[in-house]
Design a protein around this nucleic acid. Structure first.
Length: 944
RNA sequence: GGCCGAGUGGCGGAAUUGGCAGACGCUCAGGAUUUAAAAUCCUGUGUCCGAUAGGACGUGCGGGUUCGAGUCCCGCCUCGGCUACCA
């Protein structure tokens, strides 16, 4: 009984916390608030992975620590529960996905509770809760009701959208259409992955190399009318507001790069009748640069308008609407075949081999507006229809891709930027068109602009084009509008109705479901199998659900569902007020608790989730529903946890060893030696391996190199660690402690079971330091006394308090644990352990290993939880040392040490160093050139 | 190909940011306790030379700055993550 028994203690305190609602958070914060959030998990059937508790333990330590420091802490947990695996399971077993989802949630909850996290479980939510997605739908309707005012740079109610006169003149339907075109949520044709053999539409991650992941059937990309969210309207704000937020530079950069803002110019090239070019150009000088182009014009986007004189050909994307119009009779067939082929290729395939470029000549020419030069127009799939204008002017001398293409097809390369003499650039080759140079330089071969610096040229030519009406400044983003619908069952239904006419055909009028009629719940289905049409499974619902009648008008419900990202875009707001039925969050509570002060999660969500959530937040902000510009003030990404270190080597057919340096992997994934013979990988145990220099080799044969590395945990590799097992064998406190002790929170680190045993050993020692483990019943160790702590004990204690406090504040949990270990190493050697010192230590340990801490706290005399005990304060006066040891160096190498008074003066320190016996010896006969004295640190003699 | 991060003992990792490299833990070895084992406790554990005392070398590699570099600068190498023709 008195041995440390985590199983008993952990169950006891988990029950205590639950029964006493120890971590229930008040509706409104009292005093300083702290909102600490974990990225909520997808409740997969596999249960928790050891990667999950890494971040969760980090946030839990922070929360328990800050509660003891008196803050009002909000620390919730929930589930991102819509997702494909549940739907696949539903199809296979013909059970509603909700069933398996709820089972998995129950399992996750059990596992999370088993780890002793101090969540306020009364706030737990799942994105699949009808009461939750009611408000997800409500926010969608808000997006549907919002247009983006470019002048004010904010989202406004659609009712305030100015309607142009010519539109309102066309009548109500035209006005409705105009509004629909401007909403943040709008319908557009987008390509989906249609797999005819499976009779369903597939998500991108279900498509591998143009074939279905399941069954390996061909997948074709077909256009389908789908919901889009106008996130690009917020691109600049999403980029600029990163400045005010405490995230790592790495993540900020990732987001900036994803948004990918580029500033350049749109330029019009004439593609009409040759003779009319002059008229076109003079006409443009009058009309200016038009919003919409006619089919005598090809519009391109470029970031390098200073290279216009170097444009030796044009490229349009295969899907460009001008292809048909441009292609000459002779090239008709070739171009058609090329475009057809491109349509079967996914974006992935197109970009797979980015070295070799393909394309075909259309037979047509465009006229360069700066010099009237005739430029051939090609179709090539290295130009994407979805970026810029889907057409480019190609400047092979100064663009890597154009250069490759021009080389491939023998197109002229004219240098128009002189790089000058610089490192790594062969100027002669660039000028001769034999090397591509994409930096800034001085203009050449550019008529009247020769001699201009790139930056000046850009500015000048933009002004000239503007005046001519042939060009204008333009900004583009890599970020595209967000494709927001999925052809799936297990997602939030859109609260949208399509009006039908008397013949049940859509009139084109769409409306939102009235707020009073929310939520739109998922209909029950006979089965969840795909129905074989490129249309969502909700189309199989009963007519009752599918065709509502309102005010005598018949409608068809939208049958797409929202993507998994939807629910995770705003869950952090719902936690603040999880059961509110009148409002997605009470405004006063929102104001009191927001923003999230610390958000911890995996780097896999560094871009999309965070970008999407920030976008929704900004829309909510513009419409006055939240008070902060950004939702997540501080973001930390935990590192990945890899499997245990593995040693491997190869064996040939004769079972002879083959070193890893002699083997490579072929296209089929088989391992081969240089001569082509196949070898098989063999796993080795640690004792078969030894280190030689930088590499590992076989202990029996040191000429054979062994591979030593840790791999990502995966089912197929069989190196997944299950938290249940760890808790069973070592206890939750050991798991928590080990996850934190492995290394810095943000680092990638390999799992080592022996390390778990190590921290268990530490908790055992903590236990024995305070508990008499040989007694029959639970009793204090007889070395714990109610005595005044002496100076030595206080010094160790306060040193520990200081270090643990600072490290915990900085999320340096690994070193905080090391300091606690030092404390325990010291006091287990002491025959007298003051009770007050033990109590303070238990409080320091509590955020890290809360169960054992509560048990010891109780044993040391407390009647209730330590969760709200004040955090120990350290007193600097106990830390002052009277004497310190100072190293003495000669030319930077430590030669001796002396013990001196801590407050010794610089001169005295130097004198003391010089008087040191050993230094006398070493310095004899050499000339002291210089002495460096750093008080409290060191003395360094520079000698000749 | 691009971007980001990281290379320190047999392993995971420390190092007040330019000031005693290797804290803490694991592993391994030796010892104590035990009839024995487990558990526990103690000692040692970067490499090389040396019985010892001690000495030399050491933070991926090559240079540099400095009295002094794991830390700063220049040039490489290796590994990991993300990303993929964005004109």
């Amino acid at each position: 009984m008195p041995r440390y028994n985590p199983g008993r203690i952990e169950a006891k305190w988990q029950t205590y916390w639950e029964e006493n609602q120890t971590f229930k958070t008040s509706e409104m914060p009292a005093g300083e608030k702290l909102y600490v959030l974990d990225m909520f998990p997808y409740p997969s059937g596999n249960g928790l992975h050891v990667g999950h508790p890494e971040g969760y333990t980090a946030t839990d330590i922070t929360c328990r620590f800050e509660r003891m420091r008196g803050k009002s802490v909000l620390h919730p947990m929930g589930y991102d529960a819509f997702g494909l695996p549940a739907e696949e399971h539903a199809i296979k077993t013909n059970t509603p996905p909700r069933e398996s989802t709820e089972k998995n949630i129950a399992n996750f909850t059990r596992q999370l509770k088993m780890l002793g996290f101090s969540y306020d479980w009364s706030r737990c939510l799942a994105t699949t809760d009808v009461g939750y997605f009611k408000w997800t739908q409500w926010i969608f309707l808000l997006l549907f009701d919002t247009w983006f005012d470019i002048e004010q740079n904010k989202g406004r109610p659609i009712s305030e959208l100015p309607i142009p006169e010519d539109v309102s003149a066309e009548g109500e339907l035209a006005v409705a259409k105009y509004r629909d075109q401007h909403r943040l949520a709008y319908l557009d044709d987008a390509l989906v992955n249609w797999c005819a053999d499976l009779g369903t539409v597939l998500a991108n991650e279900e498509v591998i190399d143009g074939r279905s992941e399941r069954g390996n059937y061909p997948v074709k990309r077909i256009p389908l009318r789908q919901w889009m969210l106008r996130i690009t309207a917020y691109a600049d704000r999403l980029e600029n507001d990163l400045e005010g937020v405490n995230w790592s530079d790495g993540i900020k950069k990732l987001q900036r790069d994803w948004i990918g803002r580029s500033a350049g110019a749109e330029v019009d090239f004439y593609i009409g009748e040759q003779d009319a070019y002059h008229d076109w150009k003079t006409g443009r000088a009058v009309t200016g640069f038009p919003d919409q182009i006619k089919n005598d014009t090809l519009r391109v986007y470029t970031t390098r308008p200073d290279t216009l004189y170097g444009a030796t050909y044009m490229v349009i994307a295969p899907e460009h609407p001008a292809v048909e119009n441009l292609v000459t009779a002779g090239q008709q067939e070739e171009v058609k075949a090329y475009c057809e082929k491109a349509s079967f290729k996914s974006d992935r395939e197109r970009t797979e081999d980015s070295k070799s470029k393909t394309g075909v000549f259309t037979g047509a020419y465009a006229i360069n507006p700066v010099n009237g030069a005739k430029v051939p127009i090609w179709v090539a799939d290295y130009v994407l229809i979805s970026y810029g204008t889907g057409a480019i002017m190609a400047v092979p001398a100064h663009d890597e891709r154009d250069y490759q293409f021009a080389k491939e097809y023998g197109i002229d390369i004219i240098a128009v930027v002189d790089p000058g003499e610089r490192k790594g650039i062969d100027r002669g080759a660039v000028l001769a068109g034999q090397q591509c140079f994409h930096g800034a330089g001085v203009a050449i071969n550019s008529g009247e602009y020769d001699g201009l610096q790139t930056a000046d040229f850009k500015k000048t030519i933009r002004e000239v084009l503007e005046v001519q009406g042939t060009g204008t400044s333009a900004v583009n983003y890599k970020l595209r509008d967000w494709l927001f619908s999925r052809q799936r069952f297990w997602g939030e239904p859109f609260p949208i109705l399509h009006e039908l006419d008397d013949e049940d055909n859509p009139t084109g009028i769409i409306r939102g479901v009235d707020e009073a009629d929310l939520p739109v719940d998922l209909p029950p289905l006979e089965d969840y199998k795909p129905h074989g049409r490129p249309e969502p499974p909700l189309a199989k619902a009963d007519d009752d659900w599918l065709y509502p009648v309102i005010d005598g008008k018949r409608y068809r419900r939208e049958t797409n569902t929202m993507p998994q990202w939807a629910g995770s875009c705003w869950y952090y707001l719902r936690y603040i007020d999880p059961t509110n039925e009148d409002c997605f969050v009470n405004p006063e509570k929102e104001k009191a608790w927001m923003p999230v002060d610390l958000y911890i999660g995996g780097a896999e969500h560094a871009v999309l989730h965070l970008l999407y959530a920030r976008f929704w937040h900004k829309v909510l902000y513009d419409r006055g529903h939240v008070t902060t510009v950004e939702p997540f003030q501080r973001l930390v990404n935990q590192g990945m946890i890899l499997g245990e270190m593995e040693f491997s080597v190869y064996q040939d057919a004769a079972k002879d060893w083959v070193g890893v340096d002699k083997v490579s992997r072929d296209d089929e994934g088989r391992y081969r030696q240089e001569d082509g013979t196949e070898v098989l990988p063999v796993k080795l145990t640690e004792e078969k391996v030894t280190k030689q220099g930088d590499t590992f080799v076989l202990a029996d044969d040191e000429s054979i190199r062994v591979d030593a590395r840790s791999f990502k945990m995966s089912k197929s590799r069989g190196n997944v660690i299950n938290p249940d097992e760890i808790v069973e064998n070592y206890g939750a406190d050991s798991l928590r402690l080990y996850e934190m002790f492995m290394g810095p929170l943000t680092a990638t680190k390999p799992w080592a079971m022996s390390g778990v045993n190590g921290v268990k050993g530490f908790l055992d020692r903590v236990w024995r330091m305070i508990v008499n483990d040989r007694a029959e019943t639970l009793a204090l160790n007889e070395m714990v006394f109610d005595i005044e702590a002496d100076a030595d004990a206080l010094k160790i204690l306060h040193k520990t308090i200081k270090a643990v406090t600072k490290d915990t504040e900085n999320l340096d949990f690994n070193t905080a644990i090391a300091r606690m270990m030092e404390f325990v190493n010291h006091f287990t050697k002491q025959q007298e352990r003051p009770r007050s010192v033990m109590q303070s230590f238990v409080l320091l340990l509590a955020p890290y290993a809360p169960h054992i801490a509560e048990e010891l706290w109780e044993l040391l005399g407390a009647e209730e939880t330590l969760a709200y005990e004040p955090w120990p304060e350290f007193d600097e006066s106990f830390l002052i040392e009277s004497t310190i040891e100072i190293p003495i160096q000669i030319k930077g190498k430590v030669k001796s040490r002396i013990s001196v008074a801590a407050d010794i003066s610089k001169d005295d320190l130097q004198q003391a160093a010089q008087n040191d016996e050993k230094m006398q010896e070493l310095l004899a006969g050499s000339e002291i050139v210089k002495v460096i004295v750093v008080p409290g640190r060191l003395v360094n003699f520079v000698t000749k």
